[in-house]
Nucleic acid binder design. Sequence first.
DNA 1: CATGAATGAGTTTTCATTCAT
DNA 2: TATGAATGAAAACTCATTCAT
Lengths: 208, 208, 208, 208
Amino acid sequence: MAHVAPNSSNAADRRAERRQAIISTAAQLFARDGYANCEMESVAIQNGVAKGTLYLYFKSKEELFCACVDSGMKQLQTTVQAAGRRHDDPFVKISEAIRAYLMFFEQHPEQAELLIQERAFFHNRQQPTYFTYRDESREHWRSVWSGLLEDGSIRPELKVDQILDFVGNLVYGTMFTNHFLGRSAEEQHAVIMDIFYRGIWSDSQRTS
Amino acid sequence: MAHVAPNSSNAADRRAERRQAIISTAAQLFARDGYANCEMESVAIQNGVAKGTLYLYFKSKEELFCACVDSGMKQLQTTVQAAGRRHDDPFVKISEAIRAYLMFFEQHPEQAELLIQERAFFHNRQQPTYFTYRDESREHWRSVWSGLLEDGSIRPELKVDQILDFVGNLVYGTMFTNHFLGRSAEEQHAVIMDIFYRGIWSDSQRTS
Amino acid sequence: MAHVAPNSSNAADRRAERRQAIISTAAQLFARDGYANCEMESVAIQNGVAKGTLYLYFKSKEELFCACVDSGMKQLQTTVQAAGRRHDDPFVKISEAIRAYLMFFEQHPEQAELLIQERAFFHNRQQPTYFTYRDESREHWRSVWSGLLEDGSIRPELKVDQILDFVGNLVYGTMFTNHFLGRSAEEQHAVIMDIFYRGIWSDSQRTS
Amino acid sequence: MAHVAPNSSNAADRRAERRQAIISTAAQLFARDGYANCEMESVAIQNGVAKGTLYLYFKSKEELFCACVDSGMKQLQTTVQAAGRRHDDPFVKISEAIRAYLMFFEQHPEQAELLIQERAFFHNRQQPTYFTYRDESREHWRSVWSGLLEDGSIRPELKVDQILDFVGNLVYGTMFTNHFLGRSAEEQHAVIMDIFYRGIWSDSQRTS
DNA sequence: CATGAATGAGTTTTCATTCAT
DNA sequence: TATGAATGAAAACTCATTCAT
């Protein structure tokens, strides 16, 4: 019985690998030059293939771009979920998921750019992929927060959806300003969690 | 001596008015179609002038676009400052400034789009105008927060810059998700301030 | 009172002139190189204008091509009608119209090519322009033939439509073979009319 | 000694069969889509082979196309000749040959399209295949007509070449209009022969 | 100042053909 | 023989910008 190499065993696998390789370089170039200024020729050259070859893997420039965004968001989702699953304490789970989220974009700044490019070029055609993935995860986090609400860890007057929105907006905004201003996710993370959990008010202010 | 009308008293004023009129319609069109898909011709037609005329007011399409962003950010700044100045209590001042900020983008959704377009097309050429204006206001808000910190209204372990960043990121993220998802600023505002000020933890959780 | 030149009196006229000039050179080039091999750039250069200018007059290459065919068929129609109108005797009228038809394509061989190109490229999109114009003239010639049938000049067992079809097919086929084989219309014409009117049979054969 | 099947006895025969199969489907597709819009890929798929295989049988797309035209014209020639040979009377022979000609294109409309496509795309490179085959048959028909002229069946003032041209043009034009306008060859045939043999003039008109 | 006709650089996509397997 | 992945030349069309009027 012939041994089959695990990661390029057949034509379909090689195709998938090649596809992913194109996506990776394309993502970098789209992010660096912008969707409009990034030529298919550059992507091809950067991949060591001819222009026409790209069209064997993607029907159009737009489809290639969308594949880049989609691939990135999938990776983000995986990364964040994995980070959360590594811990049992809900607050730690949440905190570590947020850290993973911020770290992901710090390590993959091109993904932040792609989100902007997507909105800039395709806002009339589709809802941002980011929010599609965001909605997918929502149920999971909703149950985590519900638990915290039920066991009295969270102020009872808050609603889960409010918290989900708040934290979603907070990390979204933080991620982008980190990206634009070159700030470090690591430093931000502790402060964010602190204020998010405890607020800014002093005890005296709280009780007044 | 001829009477001079107060708001189009002379050629320079008329020029400024016309310039502003062009900016207004251009902002709408850039936002609706995207920078790349928005033709100078459309802007001209929408203004009832000929294409060539635009070039008497703006050196290029890019300059026109930048004028749109700049004009929008100026308006935002003015609106937010005015909202803050209407109140004396620092927390109310801050809260109302934030409300004004969110309301501004709700009423001028094209400005949110322009920020995206700017980043998408010109990130290699300039820092986002938004952050330039953001930095300009920072000093003012720093002094407000410093006062709160000094008088013990704020937890003493927090630093003003941390708070400024936190709230900046929070409203930035909130504004964009409101914009993308069509959410109402009014509803968000109360929750945001509540969590920002008090955190999400219950008293029992805080003391544990 | 200013004198106004009769043939370029205003912008609309100049536009029409320019349009016609483009059509003329385009017709030559489409015929020479074929629709597919004729580049818009060539047409522009041949006209002494830039490529973009063509698109101010014609929405697309296809539209320019159709304008060429249409213009040619209009000219053909005019020429043939005029030739017919110059004579009163119906048989002469018909004969001269046919001569004019054959001469037209001899003098405008590009029009014969355009008919072929049109069919070759657009047969899935529209009926050949030639047949549209052919149908338009049919009524006129029907009445001429009807008169001849009624006054006994034509064999009574023939029907007008049969004659119209026969002569239509005959001149159509003759025109194309003249064109392909470089034959002279002038020579063909007399023979065609002779056989068409009298047939090929000898008297003895007719009566047998 | 192995038994050899009579109609695919060896490699050469199988190759010829396959070649012909490709020609048949290619002819349909060239006619349906036009030479330019017909992709080699489609031809391959329609034949159940891979693109590369076509190039084992034909050097290029152009050669494949030419083979289609040539094959069609050969079939036409065979069909027409066979129809003529079935009769002894020269007028019947001629009439039946013409009927066969018109019927052939009615049953093989793709061949009419191919003639147009050939002219449209290759008129700078070769004379139309149709006329090559036409010339080949000319000698045969010339002798038929000469006989009729000599035995007094045909008006003595006519020349054989004139008759050959006339009838050639007539059937050529008739075939194409039948094709374009969807007319039936069967109906046309009788009228064509009648007018061709007897002309349109009434006896009174002939003698006047 | 205002116009709008003219310009021409620039890019995606297609598809015939090749060639390693 | 047969395959089909890879190639890369080629061309229509757009639109920001200019400039003669």
